[in-house]
């Protein structure tokens, strides 16, 4: 259905996003993640956005909303690997990802979940 891969690693959902997803793909992300949350009851979701080259307001809003929904379903969401250019642009445009946690890469995101604590880089 889309370019998004959702796989389960230990008690986590690993979601990998393509470099430039269209709106339909971004909308599908929310759907797929919530379905998987229900079916497999993971502790949380790691969104690997290291390939993502453009994060516009629609994309950011969808991600922030999805994280809120995941939280309502008892999980946490960690965004991993945002590129510097994307972070600068997002900051300049005024996008916030709400209370979502972030990690430098997937490894660190997995560590954070395994430790069960907040991120070092932290919106706690």
């Amino acid at each position: 259905m889309s370019d998004i891969s959702v796989i389960r690693v230990r008690d986590l959902l690993m979601v990998t996003l393509p470099s430039d997803p269209d709106d339909a793909t971004v909308s599908a992300l929310q759907h797929q993640v919530l379905e998987a949350m229900q079916k497999r009851e993971p502790k949380g979701v790691v969104l690997d956005i290291s390939a993502v080259e453009t994060l516009d307001s629609f994309f950011a809003r969808t991600v922030a909303e999805t994280a809120q929904m995941v939280r309502l379903m008892g999980g946490r969401t960690i965004i991993a690997g945002m590129r510097p250019a994307v972070a600068i642009t997002a900051t300049q445009i005024g996008l916030t990802l709400g209370k979502i946690e972030t990690a430098l890469d997937v490894d660190r995101a997995l560590e954070m979940v395994a430790r069960g604590d907040g991120n070092i880089g932290g919106q706690k």
């Binding site: 709106d23 080259e53 453009t54 516009d56 307001s57 629609f58 590129r83 250019a85 600068i88 642009t89």
Partner: peptide, 17 residues
């Protein structure tokens, strides 16, 4: 440069949408 490309593409995405 990479950061400016990202800025321009993001602005285009907003306006196109």
């Amino acid at each position: 440069g990479a950061t400016d490309v990202t800025r321009i593409v993001t602005a285009a995405s907003e306006l196109a949408r």
